[in-house]
Design a protein around this nucleic acid. Sequence first.
DNA 1: ATCAATTTGGCGAATGATTATCCAAAGAAA
DNA 2: TTTCTTTGGATAATCATTCGCCAAATTGAT
Lengths: 147, 147
Amino acid sequence: MDAPTRFEQLVAQLKARGYRATPQRVALLKIIAASTGHPTATQMYEQIREQFPTTTLATVYKTLALLKETGQVLELEFSGAENRYDGNKPYPHPHLICVQCKQISDPTIDALDQVAARLSRSTGYKIIGHRFDIYGICPQCQRKSKK
Amino acid sequence: MDAPTRFEQLVAQLKARGYRATPQRVALLKIIAASTGHPTATQMYEQIREQFPTTTLATVYKTLALLKETGQVLELEFSGAENRYDGNKPYPHPHLICVQCKQISDPTIDALDQVAARLSRSTGYKIIGHRFDIYGICPQCQRKSKK
DNA sequence: ATCAATTTGGCGAATGATTATCCAAAGAAA
DNA sequence: TTTCTTTGGATAATCATTCGCCAAATTGAT
């Protein structure tokens, strides 16, 4: 799905739930829909500030909370670091994290759902979701540290 | 490995690095070696307090930091909740977490290392570790909520 | 359009786990 | 013992996130 479409979708589903599409919220939705990476709340906050200088971090968090309610955004919690948000693939999926440059990418790992299904059978758990982070050093940082 | 053996191992490796085996530290190591679950710092702190009532949470964290340095304990970070510690399987392994009773168990999932190896090949990343948490509702809590 | 009712943004303070600082006490070394 | 170093305890600091409050904005009804 392209960014404008995703943006419209986010606005529509916000309105459908009876919330207002205020300028600040619209700005955030636009950023989220356009972002390919996994931005922090602060990063989005700073972008919004360019248009709406009075905006507060609290507002950003409040809007993100609205999106989380209906699973429109995936929140990656990090203890000791800011959380990261993904509004384009808001369902659980693996993340490859470079421990040096902190970049996060989305690798393709198939058979993950099967793992969950098998686990559900063998343990009796009702599986709700998962979080799979793989830590490593990206090729670029490997090159840098060799110098 | 049984708890006493693991305990001796932890004490030995602490001393080997030039650190003192103080009563408070020994108490923590004993708890960690004996624990089968994934206790929080506070839980261990309260156990230590029974023997050494003046102990502080800071001391617990300091000792845990020492263990982390050499990978003797696995720290499971949770944003918005206390971290959990595993001193018996201090290497990355999957965790099955009940979102209701918060119980954490260690399911067996094979082929995880192969996933990492394959990922390393396809992305060029040098894989360092991973974190795999599966969220669900345990059989016990499922029964409870049906009533 | 006007007014009342509701939602929202901004601001500042609160939260809560973890960490840092500082000093006295304990232990090791000489 | 005396000196030097490590450690524990107490307390404050940190930092991302959340909360409470109020004024401003928006909606809906009259």
